[in-house]
Amino acid sequence: MAAAHLWAGPMSAAPCIELQRVEAGYDTPVVGPLSFALGAGEVVALWGPNGSGKTTAMNAISGSARVFAGTISRRPGLRVSHQQQNPLPLRDIPLSGRELLALTGGDAQTLPDSLQPLLTRRLSELSGGQLQLLQVWACLTAPVDVALLDEPTNNVDAAGVALLEQVIARERHRRAILLVSHDRRFVEALGARIVAVGES
């Protein structure tokens, strides 16, 4: 299941993803016009009040929201992982933590000792915070060029947030990271470049 050969790594100074005056939504536009670029090795945080369309902007990049105006440019062959905000509604599926990480090619070996026991447990036996950590880990350590993380600290305790800060600091040299978070302290601790959404 490992897919390490897929990882291209940060290859050039050209942006991985660039949005130019993008207006996005589902039935109608709910965010934009929005312009920013995400370069290799960069951590960018979309920041704005509730309902400003941060998640919609991220979904437009992943292809699950509609782009009404503007353009989203992507480097050819770009590999992208996407950790979605809503927790998996799929707990009845008999999958272990190790199998979840293996699906994305995520790195189980560097998971801290405190989380290693999660690898052998069925997903339905995990708490919301444990499942969230595994999902984020699966997307963040997958062999991709860009990781999209939507509210990665949801349901996660202080120790888990500290762990996420460590792994993002480690992984940012291997891939670009775009995140949505309401946790200002977390965003600042990462040294992320902040892109305001929904502010005139």
């Binding site: 992943s62 292809g63 699950s64 992507r74 996407h82 950790q83 599926i93 999958l95 293996a102």
Partner: peptide, 18 residues
């Protein structure tokens, strides 16, 4: 197998990579 499981557990994984 892996592709079907991946698409179910991370529905955007393929789409996000085009």
């Amino acid at each position: 197998s892996r592709k079907l499981l991946l698409e179910r557990m991370f529905p955007d994984f393929f789409r996000a990579s085009g």
